[in-house]
């Protein structure tokens, strides 16, 4: 099969970018989208042209590295899959495919289709962890957790941090990502002691990085390759309000801090 590509090319973070057209002929419909780009790049390289830079790693939908906006949708036309799990058979012979990088101020473009998503890492560093004493490993199953809670925590932990939620949101909001990362810990007994401090600092970091705000359009959850639910944003909002009240009561009682 053959497709026409319309690809965003940008030499570096501060260079102006533009769309360039490429013809990708002789493709196998069972190639993944990234394999198609590999083939295009091989041909570009053999002609002495600069290959298209794009991010990829595991190519099996679990690492969250691949991040292309394909025909206006993060990760392409499929549902609940990442760019690497999108196959050329999802397109028709002769289609024109527009490929853009994820666009958001906190995700600056490094080159072509590669964006810097370390804003997510900084949010995680601000509180997306559980503090533990190192030492002998605790007994397995020593803390009973109901199946419902374990399942919900897993649903949140499905998030691979790819940034599709930010890319699809009209406000470039990261609330789906942050809420998944807040909830995967606050749902579990191990994460509960620090839940107030965690949600306050992760939200503060999210705001500081310059992400937009949720207007509950639901686009984030619709494009999420892991189908993380909007319910986690509700949960994060509730956790945040609880943390604020806890803080207020702590202050009223004259305690230092109070959260966490």
């Amino acid at each position: 099969m053959k497709v026409n590509l319309r690809v965003w090319r940008q030499r570096g973070p501060d260079s102006p970018g533009e769309f360039k057209n490429y013809e990708a002929a002789d493709l196998n419909p069972n190639m993944s989208f990234l394999e198609m780009l590999d083939v295009v790049n091989d041909r570009l390289a053999s002609r002495g042209e600069e290959p298209i830079a794009f991010a990829h790693d595991c190519r099996e939908g679990i690492c969250g590295t691949c991040c292309l906006n394909i025909n206006g949708k993060p990760h392409g036309p499929g549902r609940a899959i990442a760019t690497c799990q999108t196959y050329m058979r999802s397109f028709r012979d002769g289609d024109t495919i527009t490929i853009e990088p994820f666009r958001a101020k906190p995700f600056p473009i490094l080159k072509d289709l590669v964006v810097d998503r370390s804003a997510f890492d900084r949010i995680m560093q601000s509180g997306g962890y559980v503090s533990v004493r190192t030492g002998a490993a605790p007994d397995g199953n020593s803390i009973p957790i109901s199946k419902e809670i374990a399942d919900r925590a897993m649903d949140a932990a499905q998030c691979i941090g790819c940034g599709a939620c930010v890319a699809a949101c009209k406000n470039a909001s990261a609330m789906l990502f942050v809420s998944a990362k807040v909830s995967q810990l606050s749902l579990l007994p191990q994460g509960r002691p620090e839940r107030h401090r965690r949600v306050l600092s992760m939200v503060a970091k999210m705001d500081e990085e310059g992400f937009g705000n949720c207007t509950v359009t639901g686009s984030c959850a619709a494009v999420c390759p892991k189908e993380v639910s909007l319910d986690f944003i509700t949960r994060m909002n509730r956790d945040y309000l609880a943390a604020l009240m806890h803080e207020a009561v702590g202050r009223a009682a004259g305690k230092e801090g109070g959260a966490g």
Binding site: F19, N69, G72, K73, T98, E100, R103, A104, K105, P106, A168, C169, K170, N171, A172, S173, G210, F211, G212, T217, G218, S219, A221, A222, V223
Partner: peptide, 15 residues
């Protein structure tokens, strides 16, 4: 939060 928009804007997925 999005100074440069997509060529055809953000699409209303599920919105």
């Amino acid at each position: 939060a999005r100074p440069v928009n997509y060529v055809e804007g953000t699409r209303p997925y599920a919105a």
